[in-house]
Computed example of a mutant assay.
Amino acid sequence: MSTAREQPDPRATLRGGLPDRYLTPDDIAEIFEVPKETVYQWRRKRTGPPGFRIGKYVRYDPADVRAYVAQCKTAARSAA
């Protein structure tokens, strides 16, 4: 039985349109199918989608994540 507060799959919301909330590192790890530690390494190395801090929490704007993916796709096409 499903609860009313169940979170949707962030990958589905990004494909279907921008979610109406900021994404967490857990969301980013799930979207890109990488360990959460990889998301934190991307942040330390300033690679990956740009994040920002709200207090002690890191969040990601879905628009920035989409722009990052588009940039990666463009770079991959031009390198081929």
Rank of each mutant, 00 (worst) to 15 (best):
A80Q: 11
E30P: 01
W42T: 04
L23Y: 11
M1E: 15
G51V: 10
A80F: 11
G16Q: 15
D26L: 12
R21I: 07
T47S: 12
G48D: 02
V34Q: 04
D9V: 01
V58C: 04
Q7L: 08
T38K: 07
W42E: 04
P49R: 02
Y68C: 05
V34H: 12
K73Y: 07
T13W: 03
E33S: 14
G17H: 02
A76F: 01
R66V: 15
A70Y: 07
I31V: 14
R15F: 15
W42C: 03
K45F: 01
K56H: 08
G55A: 05
A70K: 14
K73D: 08
D64L: 06
K56G: 15
Y40H: 13
P25S: 08
R77Y: 01
W42S: 07
R44Y: 11
I54S: 04
A67G: 09
Q41P: 02
P50S: 02
Y57W: 08
R5G: 01
L23P: 14
I31L: 02
T24C: 04
K73P: 02
Q7E: 12
V69D: 00
A4V: 12
R66D: 10
K73R: 14
R15M: 15
A80V: 05
P8D: 10
R15D: 12
A67V: 07
G48M: 03
T3G: 06
T3P: 00
D9A: 00
R46V: 10
D61C: 13
Q41A: 11
K73M: 09
P62M: 05
Y40I: 01
A79K: 09
P50R: 05
D9R: 02
P49F: 07
Y68M: 01
P62K: 08
